[in-house]
Structures are given as C-alpha cells and as structure tokens.
Design a protein around this nucleic acid. Structure first.
Lengths: 344, 344
DNA sequence: ACGCTGGGTGGGAGCGCTCCCACTGCGATG
DNA sequence: CATCGCAGTGGGAGCGCTCCCACCCAGCGT
C-alpha cells in the first residue's frame, strides 16, 4: 500500500461538494445548514439528503474565520486557591456548567490557572478572542482577570463577586444568610461561646460568611469577641491551625462555625487531639455540604449551597450576555440551607 | 470618547498590518511568528517590534483553516459512571492533564458525556476534527468511543484499557499489583477470611483488582471462596450494598478489600451499623487513596495510585502521537503503593 | 398587458492565515 | 570574471465558509 494512500484521512466533503451533489448553489446549502427559513422545501430536502450521503460536517475554522464566533466558552478556575481534587465545590460547578451547556451548541473549555505563567497564557488566549464568553469561579478581590474581561468587553459571568459593587454579571450563594442560619442553630442549641474560622477574606463570599456570623450573634445580643475569630483559607490545614489558635485563646468555647467543610474537618481533628468531644463539648458546623461533610467523624452539620445549580445558572446568564452584549449586568443570589447532622 | 469608538472592539491587527508596519512581506512575519529560523536578525527584530506595538495576536481560525490543526485536545469523561463531584479521581486526572498541557500550546477541552445525546454530540465534534487529539478516561469494555477514535484515526490515549490486548495507547496503574499488596497486608496482619467488594467488572481496572485479590490469596494457599466476593460499582452506595451482602453470606469475615475508597466508606457505615469494630473485628482496605480515605472513621488504609501523574503521562503520550501519528502504540503501567492508616 | 412585489436562489468577494514558488543579492567557486 | 549556490524574502493562491447583492421568477394589482 502506498504511503500516500494510507495517509489520506479521507478528505472531508466541503459545502461546495454538497451544493454540487444537491444541484443547488453554496448559498442554499449554507442556509439549510444554518437553519434559515428562506429555503424552499424542495431545495431543503435535496440538500439534507446530500449532506447525509456525503457525511458532511461543517468546518468550524472556516466558519469562525468569517463569523468571528468560536462556539466555545471557557470555564476558568484559579486553582492556586486550593487543589481542585480536594475541593468538591469545583467539580460540582463543572458538572452544572457542562450539563447546561449540553443544551446549546457551545463547547466547554476548562482552563486551570495556577501560576503567573498560566495567567499570561490565558490572557493571550482571551485577547485572541478564542472563546465567545468566560465563566470565572473563585474570584478574589484583587484578581486581575475580571478587569481584563471588562477591558476586552468579553461576555463573562463570575461565580462570587469582587465586592458588593461588582460591575460584571455574577451568580453566588447567600453566604451571609447561610452563616446566620448556622450560628442561629448553634445558639438555639444553647451554645454561648461560638467561635469561627473564616475563609480568605479577600474573597467576598468568605467575608460575607463572617459578616453573617457576626450578625447572628449581634441579633441574639451576644457581645462580640474578636478572640473567637480565627482566619483560615478554606483548606483542611487552615482549619487545623485556626482551631488550635482558637483553643489556645478561648479554651472555654463550646461551638465553632467553619467557613468550609474542609476547614471543619481539620477543626475536628484538632478537637479530637485536644480531647474535646464533638458535639458534646464543642459543636461544629461547616459550609458547602460537600462529600467530605458526610464522611467526617461525626458527620458534619453544614450549610448547603446549590453548587451545581450555580453552574447551570452561570451558563444561562452567559448565554444571554453573548446573545445580547448589553451594558446591563445580570446578578443572582441563590439561597442556602442548613443540613443538620451529628456534629451540631 | 464617542460611543461608536467605544463600541468598536478595536479591530484586531492582522498579519498584513504587522508586515506593513515592519516594512516586510507577509511571509516574513509568518515565519517570525512561527519561529522559523530562516529569517535575518534584522527582519526578525523589526517584526517583533511591530507585533509589540500593534499588540498583534494571530487569528487561530485562519490558521486552523489552512493548517487543519486546532491546537486543542479533548479530555473526555463519561460521567455516567459516577458523579464527577464524588470521584476525586477525575479531579486529579484533570489537574495532571492541565499541568502538563501548560507546557505546550494546546488548549484543554473538557467534555463530560453522561448520556446518549451527549455521546452523539461528541461524535459529531470528533468527526469534525475539532481537536488534535483525545484523552479518554474511565474506559469500559463495550465503550464505543475507542472504536470511533480508531476509525477516525484521531490521536488518542486512554486511561485504563478495554482489555489486555488494547490496541490504542493507554496509561494505567498497576491495579493487580495494588490489590495484591492490599490483600498481602491483610494476610500479614493475621486475617484469614478476607472478602472483597469489586468495581464494575466491565472495566479492566476493576477486573484486574479482583484478579490481584485472588492471586494474593492463592499465593498464600488460602482456598478460594466465591461467597467472599461481592460486586459493586465504585460508588458509596455500591459499597454499602456489597458489604451487607457479604455480612449476610459470611458473617465470620474479618477483613474486606474494597476496590475504591468510596465503596470502602460505604462498607464502613454498614460495618458500624452491624456493630463490628474497625479494625478490631473487621479490617478494611480501600483503593485510590483519595481525600475520602483521610476523612472516614477510622481513616482508611488504601492503595495509592499516582493519579495526577497518570494525567501528565497521558498528555505526554498524546503529544508524541500527534507529532508522529505512527502505527505503533505507547502503553504504560504505573506502580501503586499501599498507604497504611487505622482501618487495617 | 405591464409593471411590481417579494420569496427564493446563485455566486462573487473576502475573512486572516500558511504554503510554496519565484526571485534577489551576495559570497564562494571554477 | 562568469557561474553557482543558498540564505533570505515577497507575494499569489487558496483553505471552507458566510455575507450580501444581483437576479429570477411566480403571482398580484391596475
């Protein structure tokens, strides 16, 4: 067998070939392929048959070249924050995004950004407008990406927001409300010295959870005690360190609200080492209601946020923004819900 | 600033514009952009300056149109198997793939396939050759995708294999060896009635784990007892059901090897409900050494497989295959390692 | 009978790039 | 001093598609 013949990847038929076969012009084939109504039933039938016979599939590159659409959107995850693997949160977002995108004809590009180098790569990529829109999760206050997106005027939806005055579209959970519910629950169980381990406060969501914690205490007339507040970073290790700090400062605490399940898991370890029983001595509440919550000892009471749904919603907003790149932004807050298990 | 000027997405400069500015021809600019050595230092400098001044970014669509390369690869995850969120395995793969791809100029496309509808979409996508190569994880024996990849002659690397005679390139872990190590460890701890909950046996990896289990027992002269084998599907629920079945059939068992951590977590729940102490009454070993393993009660002894590294390796093989689409396949097996914790 | 519509159609132009071939100039060679 | 490379260069052709304009017919009104 000749090498040449073997290498021929069976040249894909072009629009032109379909036109010839169907006995119509290129324009008509294009109209059929793109679902234009201005085609007679007869012509449409002929074209459709030719397409089927030839196994025609449009060449996306050629299409993009002229339409300057790409039919792809990027989901950007700044993985530096936490390892993707240990954060079920991201998986759920991905899952929701993917499901919702399935309805449309857009392809999902997953972009993990973990260092400066990769950020530059992404910047080039976005500048080249190789996607029609961007979904950005885990937004930090000083993240340069949202600004880039604004400058490029690229349709975008954030998960979380930089601040309360966020100018881009976003979807996020009612973090403050969830935290409030968690703390109220602890109060209702008779706890009085309720501590918290916060997330990274340069993330609005983490700050909101802290605010919710404070608000619930204030409402109940509990005097604020900054000694009961430790700062973490959403990771398990951060949870351990925060808990140790709290225990050292306020040995008498009888409850702790952790701004993530992973931190709650870390806190649990430290409490056990310190000989405190959970929930008898210290009640623990987490946030996210991730897989981890169901597997700790004891299982975690946690604030559930509809993560997958947030993913879906982000896509819906993005599609609207792509279809109609208006000035005005779409911003949505989803409710949270306390899931009570043994830990509190 | 005029509204019109503001709305103009500032038409991106073309190669032609760069050429004009640098006072050279299009060919020369193209050579510089693509790193051809056949350019004089002077011309190169002029072009590079022009590129910088104009902020030129090549148009990928135009490039693809003529090269028929896309500079993108797809990572396909048939999510039907298990929810992405509960399987840290996938996250680790993604992480490794993404990291390794960062070195090259290829973009990662994540494609989740959860039903027939989405499979068809993907088929169309691949047929249109919108990617240069495909990474496929979680391969089942009867999965139609590998065959499609072969037919399309699309460079591809599997994670796992359909069978021992897999014809495509693949990367997988030493599943049999890992299972053997797990069972030997149980034997060395004096356990005699060692049960197992298998994964879905239409996956070669799951079958290999079962084979390793059997082999270790045979080597130790322990007579085979099919009553000690229950079939699961890698999920937590599957683990629970398998464990119940085993307990009903062989109440005297003193150890169980689960083919995934998630199943081990399920088994743990059932054992506790049944009043068995772990590890005193029943020792438990999992597989994957995922996050879950560290959070169960007690923490799981588990077989670690280098998941992230597998992702990296898959990319390396794929790149070779893309660069040189030869007949011969590259197939790699990575070692596993037993991580001992309290559960066994 | 003669415009007029207007749905339906064909095909030229051109998107931005790479490929490739023809061509230039210059030093080395016979 | 003519001849031959050969590194370096410019630019035509063309990738497969959409856009758009000119055009072609019915079918309708006057």
């Amino acid at each position: 067998m000749s090498r040449a013949a073997q290498q021929q990847p069976a040249a894909r038929p072009t629009l032109e070939a379909v036109a010839a076969r169907a006995g119509v012009g290129r324009g008509t084939v294009s109209r059929v392929v793109n679902g234009s109504p201005k085609v007679s039933a007869k012509a449409r039938a002929a074209v459709e048959q030719a397409i089927a016979e030839l196994g025609y599939v449009p060449n996306q590159a050629a299409r993009s070249l002229v339409t300057s659409r790409t039919d792809a959107v990027a989901l950007v995850i700044p993985e530096s924050v936490a390892k993707l693997s240990s954060e079920p949160y991201f998986s759920d977002i991905i899952s929701g995004v993917s499901a919702e995108l399935g309805e449309s004809d857009l392809q999902l590009l997953l972009v993990l950004v973990r260092d400066e180098h990769e950020r530059e790569r992404l910047t080039r990529y976005l500048t080249a407008r190789r996607v029609d829109g961007v979904l950005l999760v885990s937004v930090h206050e000083d993240d340069p990406l949202p600004e880039l997106l604004e400058r490029l005027e690229l349709p975008a939806v954030l998960n979380g927001r930089r601040s309360a005055e966020e100018s881009l579209s976003y979807v996020h959970a009612d973090n403050a409300g969830g935290a409030r519910a968690a703390v109220r629950h602890l109060l209702s169980r008779g706890r009085t010295a309720i501590a918290t381990v916060t997330g990274p406060l340069d993330m609005e969501g983490a700050a909101a959870r802290l605010a919710g914690y404070r608000q619930a205490l204030a409402e109940a007339g509990v005097p604020a005690d900054e000694g009961l507040v430790a700062h973490g970073d959403f990771t398990e290790r951060g949870g351990r360190e925060g808990m140790r700090e709290l225990l050292a400062r306020r040995p008498g605490l009888d409850a702790v609200f952790c701004a993530s399940d992973l931190m709650a898991a870390g806190a649990l370890q430290v409490l056990r080492e310190a000989g405190r029983r959970v929930p008898q001595d210290v009640a623990v509440v987490g946030f996210d209601d991730s897989v981890v919550a169901r597997h700790t000892d004891p299982p975690l009471t946690s604030v559930r946020q509809p993560t997958e749904e947030m993913g879906r919603l982000m896509v819906q907003l993005l599609l609207k923004e792509i279809a109609e790149p208006g000035r005005f932004r779409r911003q949505t807050v989803l409710p949270t819900e306390l899931v009570v298990r043994e830990s509190a």
